[in-house]
């Protein structure tokens, strides 16, 4: 029994390895892009819209509202990253309803990749908003002593992100696999439903934490801008 889909290798040459994780991710990406393209091909701006457009609008506006609720003032700038994060994880976890499907999020490589993406996105948005030096200064706040703790915090939360998602999804898959060997009827269905719920919750947790981290980085610059604005007035 494979613990992760990384272990299912289709093609390998030296460092390069094409495994099930990558192939499944491509499949999900293809599905998402084609689906989005098909629905947005005939978008209507009138009062009457198609069901698919309505569904996508609900998802997009839902994500946008969530980002705004966390504290990011202009959600349009972050929806590309955070929204895709949520939708990708949700899609990866959604298809566990299919038999023999192994979610890419059940691979530590994928969750680590996503956590690294968040780890990189936080300074990216922070620097974009307040500048390189101003962002770096946030690591030495409130005092210089806090620098190592802040760095440890950054790394540990990234690690936590990766491990949390991987642990939840992998454990779900493991439980289903074990239960299938013990009791192949009915019980795995219930567990799959539970796994689906867990998967959606994890997608939400992952993306909302990413939003919170980005918001924390961006808030510093916003606070600074507000202070400068008040002083000039």
């Amino acid at each position: 029994m494979n613990l992760t889909p990384d272990q299912t290798v289709f093609w390998s040459r030296g460092f390069i390895t094409i495994n099930l994780t990558i192939v499944t991710s491509w499949g999900i990406m293809l599905f998402m892009v084609i689906g989005a393209k098909l629905v947005t091909r005939k978008l209507k701006t009138t009062h009457k819209i198609s069901r698919w457009q309505c569904m996508l609008e609900m998802i997009v506006t839902g994500i946008k509202d969530q980002i705004q609720e966390v504290g990011l003032e202009n959600p349009g700038e972050y929806i590309g990253f955070i929204g895709t994060l949520f939708l990708f994880i949700a899609m990866c976890n959604f298809w566990i309803i299919l038999p023999w499907y192994e979610p890419p999020t059940g691979s530590l490589s994928t969750t680590a990749a996503l956590a690294i993406a968040v780890f990189l996105a936080v300074p990216f948005f922070g620097i974009q908003k307040s500048g390189f030096l101003a962002y770096l200064k946030t690591y030495v706040k409130p005092t210089f002593i806090m620098l190592p703790f802040n760095i440890i915090s950054e790394l540990s939360r990234t690690l936590a992100l990766a491990i949390r998602l991987f642990g939840n999804i992998m454990s779900g898959g493991m439980i289903i696999a074990i239960l299938l060997s013990i009791s192949p009827l009915f019980i795995p269905i219930v567990m799959k439903a539970l796994g689906l719920l867990t998967g959606m919750v994890q997608a939400y947790i992952f993306s909302i934490l990413a939003t919170v981290y980005i918001a924390a980085a961006v808030q510093e610059s916003i606070k600074k801008k507000k202070l400068i604005h008040q002083k000039t007035n």
Partner: peptide, 11 residues
Amino acid sequence: MQINWFTVVAQ
């Protein structure tokens, strides 16, 4: 529980 770094980069 191993991390495949090529998969990480690819992902």
